[in-house]
Structure formats: C-alpha cells, structure tokens
C-alpha cells in the first residue's frame, strides 16, 4: 500500500515537512501512529505535503497559489486536493491531521470533505480528521489528561515531544481521553482492516 501524508508541519510530518535534501529521517506523528495501527501491513509513505502549501503545489510543480478568500471552506477543498493528488500519483491512501484551532466549522467541513473524497475517488482511502484543538492535545491524552480537548491552546499545557509520547503511548487510554484521536484511529483501523482483507 502506497501512502500520501499531509499535516501542518514537522510535528505531524517530521522531516518530511522539509525538502528531500534536508531530511534526516526524523519521524512525525502521522508516521508514528500509522506504524502502530498498520503493524503487519505492508505499506510505504511515498509522498508528503505541508497543508498550507498544497494549493500551491500540484504534483511536480510549484506555482502561485490561487486559494484566496475561501476561509474555512478552503479546508474541505484541501482535503479533496489531497485525495486528487493521491489519485493522480497512483497512491492508495491519504493520511492527514489538521488542528481544529477552535474552529468548530472546520471540523464539520473536514469531516464532510472526507466523505466527499471517498465518494469521488473510490480507490483512494482517506484517513484523517482534526485534532481538538491541536495535535498536542493527543499527547496530553496519552498522558491520561482528562481535559486535554478543553484547552484552547494545548501547546501551553504540554512539554516534551509529541512524537515520542505517542510512540510509546497506550492508545486505548489516549483514545478514551481524546474523541478526536479516537475518531482518527478508527479511520486508520478501517484502512488496516480493508488492506488485510485483500
């Protein structure tokens, strides 16, 4: 199985957020979580894209962005563009996470877009969702913090490496504390199960 991963920056993507010449193999949250959920499944991360750059970078090109003034609706467009990018580069699945950043509309738009992408590109599986309110909340959940999703800025309540914490975390515990992580893992397990059935 060939995968495209997308996220906001180095926390989600590790060194894959950098141009290839600067990569030293440092993993991001997506790589770590996929490794845990897809254990036993043969897969390869073939492409990575930073969320904010997606509108500017169709496969193989660098051109000026045209995404202007779309606001939250643009988040849904970005999900669809990810699925299209996977389709055009013949990849099997997209995995992404996006911070909700206290924008409840964003969560709905992203969830709708995931369903829309599944209908548009039936050969591309989409594993994704928003982290409420940000990716650090998932690490807080892994530390069994009850209010992890109530912090407006979870980053202010977390010290350490999100990646390292999630690499070692008991994901069942973390899922109980963070519904957004539970939903993301559920979608990832669906991908694993679908792949295993083949």
């Amino acid at each position: 199985m060939k995968l495209l991963v997308a996220g906001e920056g180095p926390t989600e993507l590790g060194d894959r957020a950098q141009p290839p010449q600067y990569r030293k193999g440092r993993e991001g949250v997506l790589e770590v979580l996929l490794a845990r959920v897809l254990e036993g499944v043969e897969y390869e991360i073939c492409d990575a894209v930073v969320w904010s750059r997606l509108a500017k970078e169709p496969p193989g090109r660098r051109i000026v962005s045209y995404r202007v003034g779309m606001g939250t609706r643009g988040e849904g467009k970005t999900v669809l563009k990810l699925a299209l990018r996977a389709f055009e580069t013949k990849l099997d699945a997209v995995a992404f996470v996006r911070d909700r950043d206290r924008d409840e509309e964003r969560q709905k738009v992203v969830d709708d877009a995931i369903r829309e992408a599944a209908a548009m590109f039936e050969h591309v599986k989409v594993v994704g969702g928003v982290a409420v309110e940000a990716i650090e909340a998932w690490a807080l959940a892994a530390r069994d913090e009850r209010d992890c999703e109530r912090h407006a800025r979870p980053k202010d309540h977390f010290e350490g490496s999100v990646v390292d914490v999630l690499r070692e975390a008991d994901l069942d515990v973390a899922s109980r504390r963070s519904p957004s992580l539970r939903e993301w893992l559920g979608r990832a397990r669906t991908l694993r199960d679908a792949t295993s059935e083949k």
Binding site: P58, R61, I63, V64, R67, L80, K81, A83, L84, M120
Partner: peptide, 24 residues
C-alpha cells in the same frame, strides 16, 4: 472529470498550467 470536482475551472487551469507546454 476528477479535477473539475475539486477545482473551479479557472483554478484548475492555474493549478496545472506551466505557461509553456501545459504538459500536466
């Protein structure tokens, strides 16, 4: 067919145009 579901028509052109051969 796929691209037009994601992009508005002008945006589609701009997203894939290279100003030369328009190979994409």
């Amino acid at each position: 067919e796929q691209r037009s579901k994601v992009y508005a028509l002008g945006e589609l052109w701009l997203a894939y145009a290279d100003g030369d051969t328009e190979a994409q």
